[in-house]
């Protein structure tokens, strides 16, 4: 569970008192796992600032950000990248223009673990996986794997960024262990014992299976198939401990696209979120989209959360209701 506790963020602190602007005024927010939240609000109401504080681009002046109780408020942006997938408003920001689609995907696939200087950066199995994933988008991107991203349209780039933000490789064993202890609820030392024991058991079983295999008399192909089977079994045992569920942060990611492309990208987003059961925070200016997608809606106004509805209540809301709320909030602020 992602949690913001009493977060305050001010801009222009060093200047005059008059220039100072409070972007977030004691914001507290709890995001349950698997929730799809849409965030709306006027310009400068603090919605983008919230996403930037969650992702680590900005540090709050006070308050904290936690995942399952683990404090990430001051963790550098690149270190927490493994927990977040991000799509930005500007299609140019989310991808490296001067690199090919394939290279961009390889970078994103290594997110959440260190980029190793001794490991070759390209692999045929990754490529196969990327092609399969790109085919699901239906934008013919799979045929353009070796093209530079810079020559593509904004919609295609945004779709590519979306894939980069949603796909994820199973992290290394060291990281699984670390994150299991980090994000477990309750006793930490007990969790450490638990995960170490789980790994040990899985390794022991694999070893036994392999020795048993050596004693059997099998043909080469059968032996190979059995080995793959044993490896998959081991991986599935370990992946039980893989607690890190990615959180998707979408910062007005369709605002720079034409209506038709925006619709397409939004549909892809919705599908990706549903397929991967991702926790999602989506900032949007389009109130209709905010009502159509997601299962919880939050409205920001001048650094405060003035509306937080979910479920049935959200389904009953209309665009007119939201507009009225905006006007009321504005009037209230003027008085």
């Amino acid at each position: 569970m992602l949690e913001l506790v009493n977060v305050v963020k001010k801009f222009n602190i060093s200047g005059n008192k008059e220039d100072e602007r409070t972007a977030l005024d004691h914001i507290s927010l709890q995001v349950k796992p698997g929730e799809f939240i849409t965030i709306i609000g006027g310009n400068g109401s603090g919605k983008s600032t919230t996403l930037n504080i969650v992702s680590g681009s900005l540090t709050p002046d006070s308050g904290k950000v936690t995942i399952n109780g683990f404090d990430i408020t001051h963790m550098p942006e690149y270190k927490r990248a493994g927990y977040f997938g991000r799509v930005f408003q500007d299609p140019m920001v989310g991808t490296a223009a001067n690199m090919s689609v394939y290279e961009n995907l390889e970078i994103a696939y290594a997110r959440g673990r260190t980029h190793k200087p001794w490991k070759w950066g390209f692999s045929a199995s990754h490529k196969k996986y990327f092609i399969e994933e790109l085919k699901k988008f239906g934008l013919n991107l799979e045929d353009r794997l070796n093209q530079k991203v810079g020559v593509m349209s904004g919609g295609q780039r945004q779709a590519l960024t979306l894939l980069m933000a949603t796909m994820r490789q199973m992290p290394s064993e060291r990281i699984i262990k670390r994150d299991y202890v980090r994000f477990c609820e309750g006793n930490k030392s007990k969790a450490k014992e638990e995960v170490l024991k789980g790994f040990k058991d899985a390794k022991e079983e694999r070893k036994q299976a392999l020795t048993a295999l050596n004693n059997e008399s099998l043909s080469k192909e059968e032996r190979k198939a059995r080995k793959v089977e044993i490896r998959n079994e081991y991986t599935s045992k370990i992946s039980r401990f893989d607690l890190t569920k990615q959180i998707l942060l979408l910062d007005e990611h369709t605002a720079a696209l034409d209506p038709k492309t925006a619709r397409k990208v939004l549909e892809l987003t919705d599908k990706a979120v549903r397929d991967n059961h991702m926790t999602t925070l989506m900032v949007t200016h389009n109130m209709k989209d905010a009502l159509t997608y997601g299962d919880r809606l939050i409205m920001f106004h001048l650094g405060h959360i003035i509306l937080d509805v979910s479920g049935e209540k959200k389904n009953k809301l209309t665009v007119e209701d939201l507009l009225k709320m905006f006007e009321d909030a504005d009037k209230k602020a003027e008085q």
Binding site: S57, A81, R86, V93, G94, I107, A108, A110, G112, H115
Partner: peptide, 17 residues
């Protein structure tokens, strides 16, 4: 590859860890 992407787009590179 990480170094190359840093030169091209620093913000994206940080977001990719």
């Amino acid at each position: 590859i990480a170094i190359r992407s840093t030169g091209i787009n620093e913000k994206m590179s940080r977001a990719q860890g």
